[in-house]
């Protein structure tokens, strides 16, 4: 804060009005610093210690960061989280784009249908997870039994091979709702005349979609991609209610691992280092996405 005060003295062109605004800005910055930047810095600091979450601790230099790259459990959690995020982003965007194209047509009960498809988004991830957990544990195996479908006979959540798919299903069920609505609002920005011109040129079907519609809703595609990926990378609620990281730690997301081992597993320092690396990863991915996709938008 001292820096700002110095600036006020230096620049004489500050009007009275400007100073009032500066006075109002100060508490905003202080609050944000205290509960966002300060904990981020503290986390970085804890990352260099062997703090257990209680008692005294020592500095261990870069050891946590070195261990991080050799720790099997951390490695597994990164693999799972990325696998989950990539599959989710692709699956959710494909399905919601198809849904949006359908819901954007002149159909009966359009608004009601749109309203219904949005419902999963308003429900809390934790409770939805519990409900689906029952579905995976009891209903699907019963269906498999009755219909004689082998791979359904055992609960998806019980096997290390399929548990992550169950989490994708629940995550997608909720995320599709959100992305569909955004795609619909994107499709509504495409002007009528474009379609008319395109019909005159004889473009139709998939060609029309890929050459005309899709480039025009590119900005919305970017939003959905970034949003979906970011939310998926931070997955926590669904893990908490569906698997708690199991079976045999095959579905531990990074957030869940930080919570589980950092808060109660005595790895406060180590998981702080993990959290900081996770932060860097999120920043890098977000910037890459924006840089890569930012240049691809078509303007009318």
């Amino acid at each position: 804060m001292g820096k700002e005060k110095k600036k006020v003295r230096e620049i004489k062109t500050w009007s009275r009005n400007d100073k009032i605004f500066l006075g109002l800005l100060a508490p905003v910055l202080v609050l944000f610093f205290c509960f966002n930047t300060l904990p981020l810095m503290k986390g970085f600091y804890y990352g260099f210690t062997n703090f257990k979450g209680y008692g005294s601790y020592d500095f261990v230099g870069l050891r946590n960061f070195q261990d991080l790259f050799q720790d099997v459990r951390v490695g597994k959690s990164y693999l799972f989280t990325f696998k989950y995020a990539v599959v989710m982003t692709i699956l959710v965007n494909v399905i919601s784009l198809i849904l949006a194209l359908g819901l954007n047509r002149e159909i009966k009960g359009k608004n009601t249908l749109r309203g219904i498809y949005f419902v999963p988004n308003i429900l809390g991830g934790l409770v939805v997870g519990y409900i689906f957990s029952f579905l995976f544990t009891y209903i699907l195996p019963a269906v498999g039994e009755a219909a004689g479908i082998d791979f359904l006979k055992n609960s998806m959540l019980a096997s290390t091979k399929t548990a992550w798919i169950a989490i994708v299903i629940v995550g997608a069920w909720q995320a599709i709702a959100m992305n569909t609505i955004i795609y619909i609002s994107g499709l509504q920005t495409v002007p009528e005349e474009v379609y008319e011109a395109c019909m005159l040129d004889g473009a139709a079907g998939t060609k029309k979609f890929f050459k005309i519609t899709f480039p025009l809703i590119m900005p919305f595609f970017t939003i959905n991609l970034v949003l979906c990926m970011k939310n998926a990378l931070m997955v926590f609620d669904q893990i908490m209610s569906l698997t708690k990281g199991g079976p045999s730690q095959s579905t531990e997301s990074i957030s869940y691992l930080i919570y589980n081992n950092g808060m109660s597993g005595g790895q406060f320092g180590f998981q702080s280092a993990n959290a900081f690396v996770f932060f860097i990863v999120i920043v890098v991915i977000s910037f890459m996405q924006m840089k890569f996709l930012g240049g691809k938008e078509e303007q009318l």
Binding site: L40, Y259, A275, F276, I282
Partner: peptide, 9 residues
């Protein structure tokens, strides 16, 4: 900055 990163501090 995800909440998970700031959680412990």
């Amino acid at each position: 900055v995800p909440f998970a990163v700031l959680m412990m501090p």
